[in-house]
Simulated assay, not measured.
Amino acid sequence: MWIYRIDEPRLGAVRVREWRRRARHAIGLLVLLLVLATTGLMVLDQSKAPFGSRLFTAVWDAVNLTTTLGDFSDFDVRQKQFMLAAMFVTMLVAAFAISRLTGILSGDDVVAYRENRTMERKFETLSNHVVVVGYRSLGQSIAEKLRRAGETVLVLVADKDMADRAAESGHLVILSAPEVFDDALRHAQLQNAKALVVTTPNGDANLAVTLLAHALNRSLPIIAPGENSLRKTLLENAGATGVVIGDELLADAMMERLAVRTEATS
């Protein structure tokens, strides 16, 4: 899977526009060369053929010149001298065009720009998916369980290494810097999502994500972890439909194990 980057591809877009500008310049130079070659061949053509015929022959020879496919053995000395000069200019123009265009589209920022364009097309049809915010151990476990259950998972992270791991695991990924993470949520198609699961260890960040996600889609089921009953209340007021307190779950699991062991020894 590819990664949608919120803030990185801007330079890639600039580079793509610059490549297109250079490509237009290179094409313009080639067209200018064709026009000059055609004009020169028309001037040097001493035949009595009609103007239209001489023009077509000149254009044909000029195109053959730029593609190096022509056979100019029937030319006189002046025409051959002109073609030699034109061939030299053609090689210079071609070398200039190659030097200006080669490499500009191979940078990481351009690759990210292209990935974003592909991901945007995927987002247009994305629906009924589960958004997982964070991809540490808890986020990885939840995303993997959802994937095994046949769900489409969209992972939102602020760390590049986590984004790479999530993409390698086959998930759709949005990578965003923490200060613009609200943009990540806006790109996550929450209006069409099935649910959102918050898994980061930062309680304040979880509260902010829950609040913004609820504002974007008030009917969206939001599951978030809470450190205590006060945090649970805050998350529920922010829009969380389910808050899991880890200590309570761990305590219940340990009590169940203790009960089983007590029954076994009685």
Rank of each mutant, 00 (worst) to 15 (best):
V157G: 05
H187L: 12
R148M: 13
E179M: 13
A195N: 03
V132Y: 10
A143E: 07
S137V: 12
H129D: 01
G139Q: 03
S137G: 04
H187T: 04
L146K: 00
I174V: 11
R136L: 14
T125D: 15
Y135C: 07
L175W: 10
A163S: 01
L156A: 04
G170N: 09
L126R: 08
H129L: 01
V130T: 15
K145G: 06
R114L: 10
D159K: 11
V132E: 06
M119K: 03
V153F: 15
F181Y: 06
L185S: 00
H129V: 05
L146C: 02
L190M: 10
I104M: 00
V131C: 02
T118W: 05
K194P: 08
G139W: 14
V133N: 02
S127E: 14
E179S: 14
A166F: 08
R148G: 12
Y113L: 08
D109S: 15
E151M: 03
L185P: 03
K145R: 15
D109E: 14
D109Q: 10
I142V: 13
L105W: 03
A184G: 10
V130N: 07
E120C: 09
N192V: 02
I142H: 02
V153P: 09
S141H: 06
I104Q: 02
V131Q: 03
K122I: 03
G170S: 03
R148F: 07
G134Q: 12
D109W: 08
F181G: 04
H129Y: 09
N116M: 07
Q189P: 02
Y135L: 01
G139L: 13
Q191L: 07
P178C: 06
R165P: 04
I104L: 06
R186T: 05
S127V: 01
F123G: 05
V173G: 08
S106D: 15
K122L: 03
T152H: 11
G150E: 02
S137R: 01
R148I: 09
P178Q: 13
G170D: 06
A195L: 00
Q191C: 04
T125Y: 11
S137F: 05
E115G: 09
R117Q: 15
E179P: 10
E124K: 09
L154A: 11
L154G: 01
L126E: 09
E124L: 09
V173W: 14
E151L: 01
I142C: 04
D161Q: 04
S169A: 15
R114W: 00
Q140P: 11
S127D: 12
R136P: 11
K145N: 06
P178R: 13
V132S: 08
L105G: 01
R148N: 13
E168G: 05
E120D: 15
N192G: 01
A184R: 14
A163R: 00
Y113C: 06
A193L: 04
E144S: 11
A184E: 12
Q140Y: 11
A166T: 00
S127L: 05
A167D: 07
S141M: 10
A184S: 09
V111D: 12
N128D: 15
E179W: 13
Q191F: 00
V132H: 13
E168K: 08
K122D: 11
A184D: 07
A149L: 07
K160R: 14
R165M: 07
D182Q: 12
P178E: 12
Q140N: 11
A177W: 02
E120L: 14
H187Q: 10
K145L: 08
H187N: 07
V130I: 06
F123Y: 13
